[in-house]
Design a protein around this nucleic acid. Structure first.
Lengths: 193, 193
DNA sequence: CTAGCATGTAAGTAATTACTTGCACGAAAG
DNA sequence: CTTTCGTGCAAGTAATTACTTACATGCTAG
């Protein structure tokens, strides 16, 4: 049990409990139990309860944003690229699911999280706009509000993510891959001249 | 101040506070203050704190589901109908924003809410599938997985709703109407044969 | 007028919560 | 070997929370 290991386990436990129950309902006692450490250890590491969330936010701000990944493997075939992006976007959101959930739950008490969360669609939007512009110049998509188009694509993926992350297969049990495939099939055809 | 008025004010206050801070952080004291009633009055009306949320859920379950509204004003012109639906769907979600937020925050502590929330896309999905099938028979949309298409349309609207409801204009300040219009322009073209 | 009913006020209780302090222990480093 | 450091353990504290009880007040219906 190194120092780093202890702090990490506390952060992981807090990430899980806060995303499940919310900040106030996730007690330091419960976090300590889940992390397998004594409650005092939490305060020795993070000072107070807010300190844990602060550490979580900091840890996340260093998280490699999807951004670089998107630019890779561009084929300049609309449907191929958009499906590739869609799958990556969805998986990315799933990988930071707990953090996203905390962001939506504790936006009031921790405004910093909201900013961090808002950065994701913001960056992706700009990447997509850039891609759409290039595709337009290549004559591969029709004239349209690129920003609105980018936001719509992000909205589709986010909507699918939320549906699956929170409601599971209650709404539908179509495999995610097929869902995204159909989504992109419609969307890319809708952009084609 | 009739009895009904008092209970309603308590429910409204709880709806607001719980959607903002979460169930645990929304104390009965704060709810009473916001409602302008004494704290004891809450317990006399609802027995205990859970009773308030139970009342909220019950109240919502009688909420007229978007469903009937969708079927009205069908023109069998794809883009017209989808835009009409999209606007109604978006406004509907906005009108129950607080409840949706509670649903996403307190799914753990109140599983009933999640079911109630899940019912919305479920019903809408079926309505849309039905519409798509009819449109297909009329030769107005191409052959495609209707369920996946319906889910995608719901996902777009939900994504836009979440973006606006939680992040405001941070991500984009395109007017909502224009955003939905472009969304539907792309989507309906993507469905056209 | 009066009886009842909804609400306010005051006071209190048991449980929980974030957080502190003091001490003991074991491992690693000098 | 000894010091330091991270951690566990025990006990405690002040504040808050959900909830209760007893009594006073005012409005309304009969």
């Amino acid at each position: 049990m190194s120092t780093k290991g202890t702090a990490e386990r506390i952060i992981d436990a807090a990430l899980q409990l806060v995303s499940e129950k919310g900040y106030t309902a996730a007690t330091t006692k419960a976090i300590a139990e889940l992390a397998g450490v004594n409650e005092v250890t939490i305060f020795r590491h993070f000072g107070n309860k807010r300190g844990i969330l602060k550490a979580i936010i900091e840890q996340f701000s260093y998280f490699p944003l999807l951004q670089q990944e998107i630019n890779k493997n561009v084929t300049w075939d609309l449907e191929t690229d958009l499906l590739n992006f869609s799958v990556k976007h969805f998986n990315f959101l799933m990988s930071i699911k707990d953090f996203v959930m905390i962001g939506f739950k504790e936006a009031m008490q921790f405004p910093e999280i909201n900013e961090e969360i808002a950065n994701i669609p913001l960056h992706i939007k700009n990447e997509l706009i850039h891609y759409f512009q290039e595709m337009y110049e290549r004559g591969k998509i029709r004239e349209i509000d690129f920003e609105a188009a980018a936001l719509s694509l992000i909205a589709i993926n986010f909507g699918h993510f939320m549906s699956r992350a929170r409601l599971g297969t209650i709404v539908s049990n179509i495999p995610t891959e097929e869902l995204l495939k159909t989504s992109i099939s419609i969307f890319s055809r809708g952009l084609t001249p």
